[in-house]
Design a protein around this nucleic acid. Structure first.
Lengths: 217, 217
DNA sequence: CAGTAGAATAGGGAAAACCCTTTTTTAATA
DNA sequence: TATTAAAAAAGGGTTTTCCCTATTCTACTG
């Protein structure tokens, strides 16, 4: 809450056109005012550390270069837990939403929502301390089942290298060569990943790696 | 140019938060005013056909449901060629940019640009009739070399379906089943694409399809 | 109606991917 | 040093992918 009796918001998003536009929109809401925006987590951190005022709310994009939404959320929770994080992203997959909520986000909005929703979300964030859209609530329900993400998402170094190389036109034999391992070992990695990720073939691996942003094309 | 002496802009983008925000931003520019926005090409078309005034400029997103940026640009050029199209997209791959320019776009902006650039682009669009950023100019240069995109990028309906299905965990036999074709025909598609795209295996197809945005994951 | 081009299909074989199971190696530690 | 768990490697068989070539099928055209 700043001098003029408005709640303050910081925007962290590398799409500066979007960020600037969003700023205008938020400033048009009667009870909110944008303090500043940053292109990524690192820049945000630096601004905060310069000692200026803290925002009440941070609108946090997830996909950013340098320091992404997850890392940023973590830093915020560790250093300024009073700040309320509202994750803002294009991704609507459950893993991403859950991960963000686990990192401490108090709400999760898709970028294609109606502006009115944003207004509601900001208000609720201040009043109730959180905002959960239908999609998020639904995701939370799903997530009650003891899931295996933790297990799944935790890859060993070699597995990550293998995954990346798998997303190329190399044969497994060639991959074994560059990784300096026996083809049979590679076959073992392959088999193990297939089981853990419940997939059927190499294309499944490629799709998985892309979805989880383990590789970029 | 409307009554107040401002150039009019329409926004066509399915991300309504972005669109609304952008509207605020543009309205804050002294010489421009947003007339309306539409969630996709179809909605835009309908609004125009209702007979209201035409915008001077259309900010056109590319990835939209229902009627995408390419189709919309085509319709605009066919029906209201005076409208200046400024393509606005996340994608910065050459194929997409070129395709959009071929469809008649007078400029191409990435969504992560600085707001000031948008202002410049809008002005130039009015004054010079076009706006070409460095990236676009560069792309145009590249495109001068008599390359094979035309040949390559022009897929038959069945090939596109095949490509999409190839990016799944289905076997070719299963693909043949759902496409109601002989496995040998599918094998023919495969072989032909491998040759034309100079790739070695199925992963190559997947990567290609993703790069060219033929599928979304 | 014969000719022709393109799409669909087929034969058949080699290479790669896939799968289940077992053994060896390695490295940490009780 | 014996124990143990994880990583690496192997054996061996099935399925799918990959590749080259040749034959129908289909629809259009001279």
């Amino acid at each position: 809450m700043n001098l003029v009796g408005k709640h303050t918001v910081a925007i962290v998003d590398d799409h500066s056109l979007f960020a600037s536009s969003l700023e205008k929109l938020i400033n048009s809401f009667s009870h909110f005012r944008v303090l500043f925006h940053a292109k990524n987590g690192k820049e945000f951190k630096e601004i905060i550390e310069e000692g200026s005022v803290l925002p009440d709310i941070v609108l946090l994009d997830i996909n950013m270069p340098v320091m992404n939404g997850f890392e940023t959320a973590e830093w915020i929770m560790d250093n300024h837990p009073k700040i309320k994080i509202l994750a803002l992203s294009m991704e609507d997959d459950e893993q991403t939403i859950l991960k963000m909520l686990r990192k401490g986000a108090k709400g999760y909005l898709l970028k294609d929502i109606h502006p009115e929703i944003l207004s509601v979300a900001l208000k609720e964030l201040i009043e109730k301390g959180f905002y959960h859209s239908e999609k998020v609530s639904e995701t939370l329900l799903h997530s009650i089942s003891p899931d295996e993400e933790g297990v799944i998402m935790d890859f060993k170094e070699n597995e990550l290298i293998f995954l990346q190389l798998t997303c190329s036109e190399m044969t497994y034999k060639e991959i074994a060569d560059v990784m300096d391992l026996s083809p049979k070992t590679i076959d073992g990695y392959r088999q193990d990943l297939f089981k853990r990720l419940k997939i059927k073939n190499r294309v499944g691996l490629v799709i998985f790696a892309l979805k989880k942003n383990l590789i970029k094309i």
